[in-house]
């Protein structure tokens, strides 16, 4: 990570007693991420959020798919699951339903969650499965060498769009909103304080929660498209970001190097899948039904 980037990332402390360290599997560091990559910054924010949340970390589990962001699970000192490509959400669904006291977080990339895993995202949000999904969106497939992603804006070159991308990208907050997520926000890795705060807030909420984190891939996206390195991307985030809390998610689609709408877009209450199941069966079966995953007299 370059010095100038560190200046931007006010919350990243590099002193010996880095408060983030207890949240990491220190025996797995150094990590695999490139210099200037934003995933580590997002993980820093997540550690902050965990720290500030006051949650019992033995009851927080993290699930990742495959890809650069998919490696996050392996670095966090939590019960952590590195699953298959695109399937972190259904794995997390099973984990949550079999052990409802867990706070389950899915941490993965845009290709993993919205290309190969898109269908699972839609259905988990529709069901209001009680999980937090954090998507680090770097607009490309990093692990495999910079192919076009379902989030790649029209224009930039990718190895499988060698003459520039002509496919329309997804607007991720709009999808999450439309599918029924209870919490939707977007920040960039320039917005470390806001991101950590959003993560903390989302950790404390119920239902299907979604945070999009815009993050540079200097190696395969920025440099290939003559956008400079990670620092240049963070500068772009700083200059072109507009905070619009509560804005209609239809309006927050991202164009190539265009305006970035960030903020908290959705914050609402809906019964979770398990709450709905318990309520429905309690109504249907009466006393013959023992609510599932609820400790007697405690919850």
């Amino acid at each position: 990570m370059s010095e100038s980037l560190d200046l931007h990332l006010a919350s990243v402390e590099t002193s010996l007693d880095n408060p983030v360290l207890p949240f990491l599997r220190q025996d797995r560091i150094p990590h695999i991420w490139c210099p200037g990559c934003g995933i580590g910054t997002s993980v820093n924010c997540f550690c902050r959020a965990l720290s500030d949340s006051g949650l019992d970390l033995d009851k927080v589990a993290i699930v990742s798919g495959i890809g650069c962001t998919g490696r996050t699970a392996g670095y966090l000192n939590l019960d952590s699951f590195h699953t298959t490509h695109g399937r972190a959400i259904p794995f997390a669904t099973g984990l949550k339903l079999s052990n409802p006291e867990l706070n389950v977080v899915v941490y993965s990339g845009d290709g993993d969650l919205f290309a190969i895993g898109g269908n699972h995202f839609f259905h988990a949000a529709r069901r209001n499965m009680d999980i937090l999904v954090i998507c680090v969106n770097n607009f490309t497939y990093g692990m495999t060498g910079g192919q076009v992603a379902p989030t790649t804006p029209v224009g930039p070159t990718q190895t499988t769009m060698p003459y520039g991308n002509f496919e329309n990208p997804f607007n991720l907050p709009f999808i999450a909103d439309a599918c029924g997520a209870t919490y939707v926000s977007r920040w960039t890795i320039y917005h470390v304080r806001q991101l950590a705060k959003a993560m903390k807030e989302a950790l404390g909420k119920k239902g299907f929660r979604f945070i999009e984190v815009m993050s540079p891939c200097p190696t395969l996206y920025s440099r290939r498209n003559r956008l400079g390195d990670g620092v240049d991307q963070v500068k772009y985030y700083k200059e072109k970001s507009v905070i619009k809390n509560g804005v209609d998610t239809k309006e927050v689609g991202l164009g190539y190097q265009g305006e970035i709408v960030v903020g908290k877009f959705v914050d609402r209450e809906r019964p979770t899948w398990l709450e709905s199941m318990n309520a429905h069966y309690s109504h249907h079966f009466g006393d013959a039904f023992q609510p599932y995953g609820v400790k007697n007299g405690q919850d």
Partner: peptide
């Protein structure tokens, strides 16, 4: 679940949940 890909990994989440 939404398909057998999901079903066959959800059960494994279920195992690690106990």
């Amino acid at each position: 679940m939404e398909d057998e890909l999901a079903a066959s990994i959800a059960i494994q989440g279920g195992v690690w949940g106990g």
